[in-house]
Design a protein around this nucleic acid. Structure first.
Lengths: 146, 146
DNA sequence: CGTTGATGCTTGAGATCGTCAAGCAACTGG
DNA sequence: CCAGTTGCTTGACGATCTCAAGCATCAACG
């Protein structure tokens, strides 16, 4: 059935496959987060904190209401994984920063996404380069509405 | 910057890109579902119903507790999008079936995932074939734990 | 047949997630 | 100084999710 040039997949098939892998990866992430005692959303927020980010910025990144971020940060802060710092330029703003323990925790989550790591290990360097290129081509259409 | 053979991406870069696209696609799906008055989870459940599926099977497909499925199906049933039918072979089992309106609703959700459709339209047939092949190579590592 | 154990589903309690409306503090532009 | 905007929090409420408990049914065994 498979020669050097198989039948091109329909858009529906491709869409289904992309959805399936997206779901699988998300659940891998959620499971890894749970092992660190975090919900998926908490881990996702923590993953954004390479530097200080204002509450409003987090709401934008997570595509949710700002009032929702308040609660998530509350719980992370209660566990010592993030800190709220005043913004020197605007006293309304609170910048969220990951603590050392926060950074270490999200590093562990990423390291423990076994299913994803295993899957990526199945590709050689050339295939990864090709895949990366194709996915980058998809990105422009995906980010910021459709 | 880009020659015919760019530097191979690190696994971390590839992982980040996969995660970003997975997130974008999920939010595209959630937005399309919301336009039909559904939450993402309700739409996701509805998307599984090509035929009758027992409650327990849905819990397995959605990777969640069976008691959770009860509530989601309750709400879908109250809106006439699914039905619970007795299983002729096992009176404990209730099979969930999408109604005509349920099928039509999930069809509309899929059709309205504009960002995803637009993104896929950016690829030509050969690229889609290549991408499909690579994603299929990833699947074995992703499904069923890692 | 009857008992024992496993399985399918629901219920209730409790936590998190998510939105909206309202409120206060602080910035911005006249 | 004043009006409008913006950033964050609070409270109310619904949806999602897990766990423990309960009921009905099935399967297996004596």
């Amino acid at each position: 059935m498979t020669a050097t040039s198989p039948q091109p997949p329909t858009k529906a098939q491709l869409l289904e496959l992309v959805a399936a892998l997206g779901t699988a990866q998300w659940q891998d992430f959620a499971a890894a987060a749970a092992r660190q005692g975090l919900t998926s959303v908490q881990a996702k927020l923590l993953a954004q904190l390479k530097g200080p980010v204002p509450m409003r910025g987090l709401a934008t990144l997570l595509v949710c209401d700002a009032s929702n971020v308040t609660g998530i940060v509350d719980r992370l802060e209660a566990r010592g994984l993030v800190r709220r710092e005043p913004d020197p330029a605007d006293r309304r703003v609170k910048n969220v920063v990951a603590t050392d323990e926060g950074h270490e925790t999200i590093r562990r989550v990423r390291a423990e996404m076994q299913a994803t790591h295993t899957a990526l290990d199945a590709l050689d360097e050339e295939e990864r380069t090709t895949l990366y290129g194709l996915l980058e081509r998809l990105r422009p259409g995906m980010e910021r509405r459709g």
